[in-house]
């Protein structure tokens, strides 16, 4: 009897180990390991070869020869274009995060205050657009914002303007596109947070004579801090590396790091330089990602 149970226990331990190992190994191999390769190639030299870079380690005279090349980073620091691109990307991410918060917060608040059955419907309405194609939704804005597009036609018909406005291929168009695409990512965590609030807290504070705005600033807003952090990180981090929206709506005018990286990689075939760009972006995002991860872990541990 005892033997049987011991064997079963070993069996269970064995099973547990597999359950942990399979997803961990998959993600290690296809998510974490690639970053090490980016690190490696960022220190390689571009070459006309397949693959188009030099090897870091080479065998020469039966000894390893380590060849580390810092040229990519020197090159990046010397050309102001790259610095500008990084700064533009950060600025763009910060502003669009703020805009998303500004629009998303009242929307999330509205959903969280609705009847439970209505909440489901409203949430579905928020999510539905993001289940259709992201690319196609950005594409829709081209037709709207073009100089002879829907918006300009409407404005001219209304007599608001007599000359078509140039919106497409400007930063304004990029902001519209980003806010449009990332708004649901802001609303969802905010809603998830706000809906947990005990409404009686606000009622209590109003009972105590607080005006609505006051009770909002003193109670609801601070309590929803976790939701704000989560939503902001879900918008800010990916937007720093955004490529599709600036490419389609910003035209040649928008200089952002995602586009620069893409061009170095696909147009110039300079893989080491693209890797260096990615590496720096990764370093910039390390802190916000860590922040996000910690928040996630906290949410995970809660209510367990």
């Amino acid at each position: 009897m005892k033997k049987v149970t011991e064997r079963l226990k070993r069996h269970a331990e064995h099973g547990k180990r597999w359950v942990i190992a399979v997803p961990t190994l998959w993600l290690m191999l296809f998510f974490a390991l690639p970053f090490l390769i980016v690190l490696k190639i960022a220190f390689a030299e571009s070459a006309i070869a397949i693959p188009p870079y030099t090897q870091l380690l080479t065998m020469a005279d039966e000894a390893f020869d380590l060849h580390v090349y810092f040229g990519n980073f020197i090159f990046l620091s010397e050309d102001a274009l790259y610095l500008t691109a990084y700064l533009n990307s950060l600025k763009m991410a910060a502003i669009s995060t703020f805009l998303c918060l500004l629009i998303g917060y009242p929307m999330a608040y509205h959903i969280a205050r609705a009847k439970p059955s209505t909440q489901t419907v409203l949430l579905l309405l928020i999510l539905l657009p993001s289940w259709t194609s992201f690319l196609i939704r950005i594409y829709a804005w081209i037709g709207i914002l073009k100089s002879n597009g829907i918006l300009n036609n409407a404005l001219m018909w209304l007599g608001v303007v007599d000359q078509p406005l140039t919106i497409l291929n400007t930063n304004v168009a990029v902001y519209i596109g980003i806010v449009y695409a990332y708004l649901p990512f802001m609303i969802l965590p905010l809603y998830a947070n706000l809906v947990k609030h005990d409404h009686s807290l606000i009622e209590a504070s109003q009972d105590l004579g607080a005006r609505w705005l006051q009770s909002f600033w003193r109670i609801t807003f601070p309590l929803s801090r976790n939701g704000i952090i989560a939503g902001s990180m879900l918008v800010f981090i990916p937007v720093v590396g955004e490529y599709v929206i600036p490419e389609l709506l910003g035209g040649t005018n928008s200089l952002v790091i995602g586009k620069v990286l893409w061009q170095e990689f696909f147009n110039n075939r300079d893989w080491p330089l693209a890797s260096s760009l990615a590496l720096i972006m990764l370093l910039l995002l390390m802190l916000p990602i860590h922040f996000f991860r910690k928040y996630q872990e906290k949410e995970w541990e809660e209510g367990k």
Binding site: L27, A32, L234, G241, Y243, M281
Partner: peptide, 12 residues
């Protein structure tokens, strides 16, 4: 490993 891909920019 689970949290990071949620926010990692696509280009990276």
């Amino acid at each position: 490993l689970v949290a990071a891909p949620l926010v990692m920019p696509d280009v990276i």
